[in-house]
Design a protein around this nucleic acid. Sequence first.
DNA 1: GTCTATAGTAAGATAGAC
DNA 2: GTCTATCTTACTATAGAC
Lengths: 188, 188
Amino acid sequence: MPRPPAAREKLLAAYCEIVAGEGERAATLDAVAERAGVSKGGLLYHFKSKDALADAVIEGLHETAAADRELMAAAPEGPARYFVRGSLEATSDVDTYFNAVLRLATAQHPGATDALAAIHNEWLALIRDEVGDEAVAEAIMLIGDGLYYHAALPGAGDAASTASHFRSRVEHVLEQVEVLRAAAARQR
Amino acid sequence: MPRPPAAREKLLAAYCEIVAGEGERAATLDAVAERAGVSKGGLLYHFKSKDALADAVIEGLHETAAADRELMAAAPEGPARYFVRGSLEATSDVDTYFNAVLRLATAQHPGATDALAAIHNEWLALIRDEVGDEAVAEAIMLIGDGLYYHAALPGAGDAASTASHFRSRVEHVLEQVEVLRAAAARQR
DNA sequence: GTCTATAGTAAGATAGAC
DNA sequence: GTCTATCTTACTATAGAC
């Protein structure tokens, strides 16, 4: 692909990080420009407006999510476990974008919620194919969403404490997922 | 109790509604005052600052959550089902406050995350007492959190579509909860 | 392609009249 | 207790130099 200018990438990453880490409100043009090491004028050359910045993040989510979807489909432990584990870790490229877009969604940015829903449905489809039962697939998704809810919440005593609590229990959670899957298999 | 002035209540409700419905950013002093039918000066008589408004919402959450906790503990269907169902409905007093505080938490308001975590732990304790197994209790909580994550997200095609999707499946979800509970009981 | 300077606007908060 | 008027600051965005 025609490699986009480095400054543009830096600005996008900076915006993403501030939105995800300090909230949408903190992501002012000044703050983004400063974090990227660029002037405000420079920022506005690459992105005509603040909204354009947000739109670019949504596009970035779609791209990284497509790549991650391949990994999920091919995961040795299976899509369900891959998904649940990923909901907790939140360290990959997709997670950065996903997190930022989640904040944009709660800030009512047009298109953000739709993007989240679309990706969510792709994940659900993969899990449904694996476990072969709609209700179980949804329950597994909900557990993953629940984990994500905790991971995405800005830290009580900071994110690390909650995250580490669940990390130490992620295997227990995955066991419960296994119980659901087994019960569904028995019924078929 | 010494009934607080009506205007104060109106202002608090207006702020809550805007934060939950249009995002924290939309809840400007002007917007809140207008919705409550009060001038900005009037608002600032009751709440010295915007932060004071947010703090009052957090306090409101604690009060309503304490009342709801009684209902949950005494629910005929049991705390677990009460919790899962409540995560989807999000129509009660607590839900209004909880939703607003969730937005405040993502906007990094001090104390908001702690308030959510505290209430969350009370719920978890009730469910743990009921099902008698920590891992299962956590899995059930996660399912509820997942439902809430969907319910709280501003609507894809609007909240109604997602909510009604899960409403029609809430019994299926509760069945999965039952599977987990039964499996845990069998192990003891 | 990136900068400085600046215009225009919206938001939080104060002061003082009623 | 509620209002109007006003001050101040911070943010988005434009214009034009380098």
